[in-house]
Design a protein around this nucleic acid. Sequence first.
DNA 1: GTTTAACCCTGCACGC
DNA 2: TGCGTGCAGGGTTAAA
Length: 276
Amino acid sequence: MPELPEVEVIRRDLERDAVGRRIKEVQVKLPRIIRRHKTKKEFADALIGAKITRIDRRGKYILCHLDNGNVLVMHLGMSGRIERSTGRKAAEKHTHVVLKLQTGGELRFIDMRQFGELFVTAGEMDGVKELAHIALDPLADSFTWQVFSEIVSSRKMKLKTLLMDQKFISGIGNIYSDEILWAAGLRYERPSDQLTSQEMRRLYRAMQEVLQDGIRHGGVTLEDETYRNLYGKQGEFQDHLKVYGQEGKPCRRCRTPIVRDRWGNRSTYYCPQCQV
DNA sequence: GTTTAACCCTGCACGC
DNA sequence: TGCGTGCAGGGTTAAA
């Protein structure tokens, strides 16, 4: 569920609240979450005593840079979240990893569906090798209209597949891809190499605007309430969704009922009238 | 190169 | 009440 905007909201929270703090103790309650490591000890030893110096984001991955040269990489999967706690409140169900901080308090990794993961790796000059396949961030300054245009037009893929493919564009998932395509007035199955230059510009602008809007509204918290920010607050962008989850409701542009298609094993929502 | 399906997982809704 | 089934979905992988 967490996509680029939700992850960015958490990144900003962590930047405010975790940078400068030292990790005192690491508890791993579910080894599956640190599946890239052979043992809990290997994971914990790479973290204990280290100070968090910077928080970055690469697509849907959060990168906590440490003063020992390591990087703690976190992916929230579908239902993961990170909670800042004083440590006094009992850990809620599905709390799988706890990082206790030297100055008090702790960071808890909570994930009902266990698709999320944490791992520690050596930081390198040009990033983290495990994330080498993750494409440029669509909100990065270097992700220009020209770069986007080249990515889209040089492939023959359905637009939604392309938007969601982390190798080409990072951070977009099922919810935001539907919203971006609605904002651009384009159908999810349109071949990426057959857009007019006007359509291409609309798609680029829609991508930037929808993602920024998502961040501004604190991300999307659906009815399952799995997504919260670092302090447990829900997002508000679900109240601004134009198509995702809006099946049968009138399109905000043309009043035509929004349609839901089963596409692969995902749902996709669109307006059959104004998305062409 | 691109598409499709299966897999991982839990909670919930639904039908019988 | 209780059981089985299907669904939600991100990323990876294998097969088509």
